[in-house]
Design a protein around this nucleic acid. Structure first.
Lengths: 251, 251
DNA sequence: AATCTTTTGTGTCATATTGACGCAATGATA
DNA sequence: TATCATTGCGTCAATATGACACAAAAGATT
């Protein structure tokens, strides 16, 4: 008989509760999502996990994301709850966990799960994706490559995207998705990608600078073709304060 | 031995999961919150409940809110999840439910609960508050009368308020909180209350009318002192469409 | 080495929006 | 009938916005 490792012993977790993470990164002027591929299948899923009996939801999400990315102190927020009865029926992971010899696997995965959705923002260049015990692959995918995920994971992903768009003026998306030093065109591209629309280059810069949340550096970004753009970094103090009232608009 | 009624049999519910509702109303130029007072105590709580094993979260919230207000088809949205370990320790309702003779009461309430927070918007004049089996009173309270609720209910309430403020341009707050016909000063007062700041009367009207989401009626609101203000109603079609992009601001 | 092409840095200008405020009309109350 | 808080409807200067022009930079092309 196989004795399960502590990390795979499902009895340590709170019943009926799970969490799914929509991890955003930004690279090559594309918004990226972290996905896992379930072992022995071609099925893709959002990184997820369960909550230990004495662990907070945020800790659980942090733990899962640390395992998937190698990063600590990841920016993450709960954005919605997915609890329709039947949403977790026919879970393809169930087969895998049974095969992997974990006790109670079938019983566990036949539960009804209330899943808490977290969205996370990470620096693409610093994350090192690695699969969990149910998956053989964990990689970044472009948004247009995420069209058929398992269960209701597409619904979860879309809900996260919508949240991202609504919170663009209230959350430090740029700070968490971009490297420490970045160019104005990169920042603009991030906004265009999240908002799904083109913005005028000159008006964008004027508005961004008017917020007083950026420090313009002496350095320029060299290496690329064409004129070398200046590098910027966030002025964290001003940034945080500006986000309190929202970056733009408001009564 | 007391045989529990079906409605009070806690075994029909999903373990570890609860929901708490922040019900907003608007009356006398004040934002009101629906609270229940726990039997034999002076302790106040948000209306809450549990999720039946075959019921969706939204259905559960609707069921709870129907029991508390008599209303159907209430506007409600999940806004956050509260799942810190220990948040449901020393629940004052536990005493009450044990006294009331329900089986498994103590065991049930000693669980750790992951509570899904819903906020609801109702027409104050149409709601008929009524207590649940753990409470002897269910009434509207002004915001400044909600200072010491049980457990983490103040945290939940504040989170709901914050959500309301953030979503003021994206959710039909006016439509759901005001009666069908309302005056411009009433609408302005609602906005001022939610946003927590004063607005210029004339500029507010100019902006509101520019949205094209209001139908100005011939009628005036009589009865009050001073000049009788015109009545307005929402133009639902334009309202919904305008909320898609947000009423104000945006890139 | 001169030229081409694309991208970036900076600025202009007409128009629209905003914030601050004025004033007459209204209608219950004194 | 005078009072007075409130409402309806406006004005106007300051600011923000959207659309666009042009020169400088830097690798690619010849």
């Amino acid at each position: 008989m196989v004795r399960p490792k502590p990390d795979t012993d499902l009895l340590q977790f709170l019943k009926h509760v799970s969490l799914d993470c929509v991890v955003f990164g930004f690279h090559d002027n594309q918004l990226k999502i972290l996905l896992t591929r379930i072992k022995n299948t071609e099925l893709w899923a959002l990184p997820g996990g369960f909550v230990r009996k004495e662990e907070s939801l945020e800790s659980a999400a942090n733990r899962v994301l640390n395992e998937r990315t190698g990063l600590d102190n990841i920016f993450l927020k709960p954005f919605n709850v997915f609890g329709d009865p039947g949403r977790s029926e026919k879970n393809p992971i169930a087969n895998e966990i049974i095969i992997s010899g974990v006790n109670n696997g079938l019983e566990w995965f036949n539960q009804r799960f209330i899943s808490v959705g977290f969205y996370a923002l990470v620096d693409f260049s610093k994350a090192v994706p690695s699969p969990d015990i149910f998956s053989d692959l964990c990689i970044w995918k472009n948004l247009n490559e995420t069209s058929s995920l398992i269960l209701d994971h597409n619904k979860i992903l879309n809900s996260a995207l919508e949240t991202l768009r609504l919170q663009v003026n209230y959350q430090p998306l740029g700070y968490n998705l971009l490297p420490e030093k970045f160019t104005m065109p990169e920042l603009q591209n991030l906004y265009e990608t999240i908002l799904g629309k083109d913005l005028d280059r000159r008006n964008f810069q004027r508005r961004m600078l008017s917020f007083k949340i950026l420090n313009k550096l002496e350095e320029r970004k060299t290496g690329g073709a064409h004129k070398a753009p200046f590098l910027y970094e966030f002025n964290l103090q001003n940034y945080r304060q500006a986000l309190q009232n929202g970056l733009y608009g408001g009564w």
